[in-house]
Simulated scan of single mutants.
Amino acid sequence: MAATTALIGGVLGASGCSFEQKVDPTVPLVDVTFTDVRAGFAADDYAIGSSARGVTDGVGSRLTININVTNANGVVINPKAVITYADGTTDTCQETDLRRLPNLQASTTSWDLPCGDDFPEDISGASVVVTDDYE
């Protein structure tokens, strides 16, 4: 019995690291600020800020959108940001795990959305349009 318990404990202990987020150290850090950010919808409960931060690192790419919640009613929303670069290419940033969708809380000041592509270092002329797929 003790040997079985030790074996299970060893397996569980060894598998504990599988829950850690994998980081790719070969991906260079890119940290950019988008200053042309607009809401593609009209909402009474919150407003989108005029800037957003994009980060690409060893974990992936994500866009942090600043928001101002005016009605903290707990409603779940599904924000989607489409970035259009000066050359016409686009990238979509949206949470795909429905369990992680944000809701309107008084303490919420930003949302982090995973993005499909890495951010370029030069984002001159880029614009971000944020919509709510639940709107």
Rank of each mutant, 00 (worst) to 15 (best):
12 L>P: 00
98 L>V: 15
89 T>R: 13
22 K>H: 12
10 G>Q: 09
23 V>D: 09
54 G>P: 05
28 P>K: 15
72 A>M: 05
58 G>F: 10
101 L>M: 14
117 D>W: 08
109 T>P: 03
100 R>W: 11
116 G>E: 15
24 D>W: 09
94 Q>M: 10
131 T>C: 10
80 K>Q: 07
88 G>T: 06
74 G>F: 03
3 A>V: 10
41 F>A: 07
107 S>H: 00
120 P>A: 07
94 Q>Y: 01
98 L>I: 15
118 D>Y: 13
124 S>L: 09
68 N>V: 11
88 G>K: 10
95 E>T: 10
92 T>Y: 07
56 T>P: 00
127 S>I: 00
90 T>N: 12
69 V>P: 02
65 I>H: 02
107 S>P: 03
55 V>E: 03
58 G>I: 07
13 G>K: 01
76 V>P: 01
43 A>P: 04
116 G>C: 02
67 I>K: 01
27 V>Q: 12
108 T>D: 13
10 G>E: 08
122 D>R: 03
16 G>R: 00
60 G>D: 01
64 T>D: 00
83 I>M: 04
103 N>K: 13
105 Q>I: 08
84 T>H: 05
101 L>C: 06
17 C>D: 07
87 D>N: 15
99 R>C: 11
109 T>N: 14
85 Y>G: 02
29 L>P: 01
22 K>R: 13
37 V>M: 03
70 T>W: 00
38 R>G: 02
73 N>D: 14
75 V>C: 04
26 T>V: 09
16 G>T: 10
132 D>P: 06
103 N>S: 15
95 E>M: 10
5 T>I: 08
29 L>G: 02
109 T>M: 12
126 A>K: 04
56 T>K: 00
98 L>E: 12
38 R>C: 02
61 S>Q: 01
91 D>M: 14
30 V>K: 13
99 R>V: 11
101 L>E: 09
37 V>L: 01
104 L>W: 04
103 N>Q: 13
19 F>K: 14
117 D>I: 09
79 P>T: 05
47 A>Q: 08
3 A>S: 11
104 L>K: 08
67 I>E: 07
14 A>Q: 06
8 I>L: 13
127 S>Y: 02
14 A>S: 07
82 V>P: 00
103 N>E: 09
53 R>K: 14
131 T>F: 05
99 R>E: 13
92 T>F: 07
105 Q>H: 10
54 G>I: 03
75 V>G: 02
46 Y>S: 02
50 S>D: 15
79 P>F: 04
72 A>H: 05
